[in-house]
Design a protein around this nucleic acid. Structure first.
Length: 373
RNA sequence: GCCCCCAUGGUCUAGUGGUUAGGACACAGCCCUUUCAAGGCUAUAACUCGAGUUCGAGUCUCGAUGGGGGCACCA
């Protein structure tokens, strides 16, 4: 029993209260003294008496042998004055009752594990095996915590990450398979994972690398599966188009599902772009070449019977060859006029196929108009 | 303040006494290419410091420094 007053919360700065509280002043109260205090109407807590000497040692599967001097341990409260057990006490009892054999938890519990063990010993219970895991830090080195606004697993899913990619990434934080593989399916991870290869130092969480890994997982997705997952990200404006075709085009280009809406926006809303976009040194495109090409290509496309990616590509390739253009030079103004963007998911003919003949011709004419002197 | 843990490029890591210190992300360049991605190639970049032990230390020992965590009638 301990009848001491509740200690005031330790001050933020120096907190001498901690050191002084190690040993409970009430630990040697006699039966009479206890009875007397009850008679005064005092309400006690129950503390565990920790030996004043010796040390407590245990072996962790990751960190090896850990020893803490008993003098470092508080006479910890087991039952609070309201009669409820403390977390630590309840935890030990609960784990024992549930016949827990292995405790796997964060490294922050490493130095308090001895006091759990002392409790197990006091009850004569079997001490479980311990596996303490290195902590995950933020990139600035601070501890990752939801209170500080760091994302949870669910948040990451919300942000467009695949659960298996998140698990894959986190597994790599403090563990490696011993070879140079990094990308794992759940099954492969289960197969390869081994507690023995967990390392001891904490790791910084890199959203950048998770993003890359997520992209790898997305690309490896079965196209049909990808399409199903992508479906809910497609905005209303794009739903009249062939969504499966769009899915095939964007699967290899996105790293997060949340990129989809902005990536496909141009399909239903042609951006207001500048004619300068038609100039591109890499494809040897100039304003003039672009104008000439659009002028000739529009009637050519108007006469097309079969409107598919393949037929369009063949026709345009022949067109380029006939006029002495590089394919890139011929395609650039078309792609640009169709997307209104410097970059797009899919090339000229893929976009034409997707948009359909009418919309393609409409956009090409808009582009040509921008190029008229 | 006391105690515990950790320490290889900016980040994640391989490495268990002898290596040109390997890989990945990011960055830069090149190739490929109907744009962008993806893919391929190349480049830049690391053993925290100081003493030992040893013929020889990233690797073993000790110390320092740095970082993280824990020290509640909270869970």
């Amino acid at each position: 029993y301990c009848f001491c007053k509740k200690e005031a919360q330790p001050d933020n700065e120096e907190s001498p209260g901690i050191a002084e509280q190690k040993r409970d002043p009430c630990r040697f109260l006699t039966q009479e003294q206890v009875t007397a205090r009850f008679a005064e109407g005092l309400i006690p807590v129950i503390r565990q008496r920790i030996p004043n000497q010796g040390s407590t040692t245990f072996v962790d599967h990751v960190y090896g042998e850990i020893t803490v001097e008993n003098t470092q341990l508080d006479d910890q409260v087991l039952l609070k004055s309201d009669g409820f057990p403390t977390y630590n006490f309840a935890n030990v009892v609960d784990d024992h009752l549930m016949e827990i054999t292995h405790v796997i938890r964060g490294q922050e519990y490493l130095s308090s594990t001895p006091k759990y063990n002392l409790l197990y010993q006091a009850f004569g219970w079997q001490i479980p095996e311990y596996v303490h895991l290195p902590l995950i830090l933020r990139e600035d080195g601070a501890k990752l915590s939801k209170r500080a606004g760091d994302p949870s697993f669910e948040d990451l899913v919300q942000m467009g990450f695949l659960p298996e990619a998140i698990v894959n990434y986190v597994a790599l934080l403090g563990w490696n398979p011993g070879d140079e593989r990094e990308i794992f399916t759940m099954e492969e991870l289960i197969e390869a994972f081994d507690i023995e290869r967990i390392n001891k130092s904490s790791a910084a969480f890199s959203l950048e690398k998770l993003t890359w890994l997520n992209g790898e997982h997305i690309r490896r997705l079965d196209p049909q599966k990808f399409h199903e997952l992508a479906l809910k990200y497609y905005p209303e404006g794009v739903r009249h188009l062939d969504l499966e075709k769009i899915s095939r085009l964007i699967q290899i280009r996105i790293e997060r599902f949340t990129e989809i809406p902005t990536m496909v926006k141009f399909l239903y809303e042609l951006p207001d772009y500048d004619a300068a976009l038609f100039e591109n040194p890499k494809s040897k495109s100039t304003l003039q070449s672009s104008r000439e090409i659009l002028q000739e290509v529009i009637p050519l496309l108007e006469s097309m019977q079969e409107w598919t990616n393949e037929s369009l590509f063949t026709a345009l390739k022949d067109f380029a060859a006939a006029h002495g253009y590089k394919i890139g030079t011929a395609m650039w103004p078309i792609r640009t006029a169709l997307s209104g963007q410097f970059a797009s998911p899919g090339g000229a003919t893929e976009l034409a196929d997707l948009l359909g003949k009418d919309e393609t011709l409409r956009r090409l004419k808009i582009g040509l108009a921008k190029l008229q002197p």
